[in-house]
Nucleic acid binder design. Sequence first.
DNA 1: ACGAGTACCTGGCAGC
DNA 2: TGCTGCCAGGTACTCG
Length: 281
Amino acid sequence: MPELPEVESVRSGLEKLLAGRPVIKRVRLYRADIRFPIPKSLPGHLAGEPIVSVRRRAKYLLIDTPKVSLLSHLGMTGSWRVEEASVLRKIKKRDPHDHCTIELDNGQCLVFRDPRRFGMIDLVEKNAEHTHPRLKSLGVEPLDERLFTPEYLFQASHRRKIAVKVFLMDQKIVVGVGNIYASEVLFRAGVRPTRAAGKITRDEAVRIVDEIRVVLREAIKAGGSSIRDFHSVGGANEVGSFQNAHHVYGKAGRACPKCGALIRTRMLGGRSTFWCPACQK
DNA sequence: ACGAGTACCTGGCAGC
DNA sequence: TGCTGCCAGGTACTCG
């Protein structure tokens, strides 16, 4: 599910709910064998610690205590939700995809659910974020205007032969851009996703960087492209609305909103890709 | 180093 | 109503 805007929306939601610095009472692991196994030592390290902040780096969430941070990635289908612990206890049959619960001293419980188990949960020691294997090779944050510049993107793409769309999704270059937003950004920038990254001009790099910022900011404001509501017990209501603003993603065969040409699709780097053959050069 | 392809896993949906 | 096959918003790994 989640690209940067969705993760950011989870982050801000959790931050509000955890603003009272609740103390972690107990952590339970129901299923540790997700993408990267959840360390068995995790409950012991977190019990008794207060939650002091919730941050995001790339598509990762960091739930901070004074000593360690809980690092998590939602993969394709992961989610965090908050439930009343008392309600959770009453439910007779446990959801088989709830892999980890974190009980807090305020009566709430954080629940990590991930049906496909592509997500991950780990611990990061304070000041060890730059050496963590999942974090150390990440590229720049797209909303960091000092680091993510057209010149940076232009230089990074120098001599690269991969399709520019695959290049934009490379988390070592710029983080947070996933399959939906990559298609949307290139449509807005007027650049065909199949173009070799190394053939992008400086002007096009300017437009791509601009559109990444604009699209991600708009999507964050809209609450992401449809993410499940982690406040509610059932978790069924959609809160994100940005999917309504998609111009090409999932629109194969429909009219381009700018020129009316038919939107095309094909696989690129194993992922479905959408573009307007008339608007995107 | 780079690029292409595949694997991981479950659920939902279209088509028969 | 089944069944089958395909697709899904991410990332790490292998191989040439």
